[in-house]
Simulated scan of single mutants.
Amino acid sequence: MLSRTAAALYWLGRYLERADFIARLVEATIRLDALSARPAGEAAWQSALIVSYTDEAFALTGQTTTQAHVAKFLTLDASHPGSIVRCLDMARLNARAVRTALTREAWTAINRAWLIFQNRASPGGSTQTLNLVEAAKAEIRGFEGSIHRMMRNEATLLIQLGAAVERADNTARLLDVKYHILLPAGEEVGGAVDRDQWTTILQTVSAVNAYRWLYSDGLKTVNVIDLLISRPELPRSLAACVEEVVDLLSQLAKRTGLQGEADRMARSRMQRMQKTRTSEVIVSGLHEYLEAFIAENALLDRAIARQFRFI
Rank of each mutant, 00 (worst) to 15 (best):
R99Q: 07
E154Y: 14
G62S: 06
T54V: 06
T278C: 14
D169H: 10
A172K: 06
R255T: 10
N209M: 11
Q160R: 13
L76K: 10
R231N: 10
V85Y: 05
V245E: 00
S237V: 10
Q203I: 03
S279Q: 15
V26N: 00
W198P: 00
S47N: 09
T65C: 09
S122V: 00
Y289M: 03
S122M: 06
D77V: 03
A266Q: 02
S126T: 07
I282A: 05
V281K: 09
R149M: 11
P39N: 07
T64M: 11
V165M: 02
S216P: 07
R96F: 10
V85K: 05
N131D: 14
A164G: 07
L102Q: 04
G125K: 04
Y10P: 01
D33K: 04
S52T: 08
R195S: 10
E139Q: 09
S83D: 06
L219Q: 03
Q259F: 03
V224T: 02
Y179V: 03
G190Y: 08
R236Q: 08
E134L: 12
A155M: 03
K220R: 15
A97I: 01
N170A: 08
T103H: 09
T54L: 06
D247L: 14
A172S: 15
I294S: 10
T29L: 05
A37F: 14
R96N: 08
T199Q: 11
W213G: 15
S268M: 01
A97M: 11
A95K: 00
P232W: 13
W107E: 00
A155P: 01
L290P: 11
T129S: 12
W11I: 01
Y15F: 14
S279R: 15
R14L: 08
T29F: 13
V283M: 07
A163H: 06
L182P: 00
A155H: 15
Q67T: 04
I201C: 09
S79P: 00
N111S: 13
R141V: 04
G125V: 01
P39H: 12
N119M: 11
Q307V: 14
L202R: 03
F73L: 04
R269V: 02
A262N: 02
M1Y: 15
A121P: 06
V208I: 07
I84Y: 10
I229V: 14
R24H: 12
A91H: 03
A298Q: 09
S3Q: 04
I50K: 15
H148I: 08
T199R: 12
S216V: 08
F293V: 04
D301C: 02
A57T: 14
R173F: 05
E139M: 13
I294L: 06
A138P: 02
P39K: 12
R231P: 01
Y289W: 01
R96Y: 13
E56F: 04
C87G: 07
M273D: 10
D247V: 13
T171Q: 07
V246G: 11
A19E: 00
L258N: 01
S237N: 07
K137H: 12
A106P: 00
P81R: 04
R24N: 01
L183K: 04
V283S: 13
G257A: 06
R152I: 02
M270Y: 15
A34Y: 09
F58R: 08
S279Y: 05
S216M: 11
G285N: 05
R212Q: 15
M150C: 04
K254Y: 09
E42G: 04
I50T: 14
P81M: 03
